[in-house]
Write a protein that binds this DNA or RNA. Structure first.
Lengths: 262, 262
DNA sequence: CGCCGTCTTGACGAATCTCAAATAAAGTGG
DNA sequence: CCACTTTATTTGAGATTCGTCAAGACGGCG
């Protein structure tokens, strides 16, 4: 079981699988990752209710798609028809303004559902790009709507999914609006740790999938600032940085840094 | 018709109606304000379809409530049961973090629907406070869910409402993450103008309902910075400021300020 | 092995915040 | 309606944070 899931990470398609930085994620019990705790399931089958709905869930996923690092899943202006559940890998979403301004608006990992930005105007408003080789399940939104009408559970979970995204965005706004650079970065590192943890991975050590520039964009900082702060936190013993490998040495210290009022 | 609607603005309850700063909003054809273009209607009755649904809409609104300036509509931790459509007046929503950090997360005016932050966890996560005497319609969310199952139109509009909120938040994130202080303020002033315009009011002159401190909080700035920038924009002929009364003298200039790449 | 994208680090400057004081406006009670 | 209190706003000077520019180091990939 675990072996199968682990092998699943090695993507076919002509690229060497299991590249070095992936190692950290490899040695973790894999059956807690990917599908079993995919938010899609939570979306439709909350506590095991309505067993007949479970069949519909299977019908929900139209197809699976493989993305290679750098591939675009959807881009602004494209017609919105489907949501995507990330099965394996990770993506960033990038917001692009008319004036050329752009910002990484989210970092999404296995189990996350992306594409909701398209619901508002039936057009995608951001670009989703794979940060590594990635597999996603395509979920036609029309089917979600059908299911929502068939089942109150599903309806509620769709609402919850959207509302949770609102809550998450608000949290980011709070971060961007009230925190200093070092606090934002600490909050970001802790958030990643928590999300990896929720997926069964180590919460104290992980590999960043984003460049310093992308992290900076997400946090409203310049890449030099991100780099400097990582170095400083390393110097101060809060974390250990080696390239994109991060070890949280003092999560409590990081938390208190975030919560420092000033 | 207009007279009635205008009189509607004068709230009863022992407070002198038509206080000075309200004057600007008075002389505008009032039948475009309040209910007729309330997002609640858009929520349920998009293009006149399904006339039987219209009855349900009336049933949607459980009751109307009057708030006096400073009153709290809901607060963090409170159980979420209803959404609120602002009929008259305006509210701010304030996000409160555990560590005491807080931020104005939104400014909401007539026609807006607030309370969606409670959907995710069935608890409100922010506090809604009336910025002036305000009337709201309470919409039990359970009824929204019922209606959503009865009508695909309604379902879609609920989704759209939530997704639109996500899109708006993303826009704010972009602002907080990539703009300088003066650009944020200019964007804010233009956004207000556009929203007043959409409600049938002047798009070039309006009265701020928030203090400098609240504006600063929303924009991730300090009140002194907001004040200084307003003074500077006034000096430069972009706007005219007199207390909370704002006149946009050069909206094009403001737009180009926002879009300046640097 | 060498190129290219990424990352680190330093020096400097600009933007924004902090602290402080004065002024203006709004609310309160007589 | 006025005097008084409180709150909001403006403005300045100085400190701090963060961005900009620039140079060099690192590391993966062809």
């Amino acid at each position: 079981m675990e072996a199968i899931a682990t092998r699943g990470i090695a993507l076919p398609g002509g690229r060497r699988a299991g590249a070095p930085p992936r190692q950290l994620l490899r040695d973790v019990s894999a059956d807690r990752g990917a599908c079993p705790n995919c938010n899609l399931l939570r979306l439709c089958v909350p506590v095991g209710f309505e067993p007949d709905v479970r069949q519909l869930v299977d019908q929900l996923v139209a197809k699976r798609m493989r993305l290679r690092k750098g591939d675009t899943l959807f881009r602004p202006g494209e017609r919105f028809t489907t949501l995507y559940a990330i099965r394996l890998g990770s993506c960033k979403t990038v917001l692009l303004a008319e004036d050329g301004r752009d910002q990484v608006s989210g970092y999404h990992m296995a189990g996350d559902i992306i594409g909701t930005d398209g619901i508002a105007r039936e057009l995608h408003e951001c670009q989703a790009i794979a940060l590594e080789d990635t597999e996603v399940c395509a979920i036609p939104f029309a089917r979600v709507e059908e299911l929502s009408r068939a089942s109150l559970q599903v309806l509620r979970n769709v609402h919850r999914m959207l509302a949770t995204e609102i809550a998450r965005d608000r949290h980011v706004m709070l971060m961007l609006g009230t925190m200093r650079a070092d606090q934002r970065l600490a909050a970001f590192l802790l958030d990643l740790a928590q999300r990896y943890h929720a997926r069964g991975y180590s919460s104290s050590e992980y590999v960043l999938r984003m460049t310093r520039d992308e992290i900076g964009s997400y946090l409203g900082l310049k890449l030099e600032t991100v780099s400097r702060l990582l170095s400083r936190m390393h110097r101060e013993g809060l974390i250990q940085v080696q390239g994109r490998t991060i070890k949280l040495l003092d999560p409590v210290g990081l938390k208190s840094l975030v919560e420092t009022s000033q």
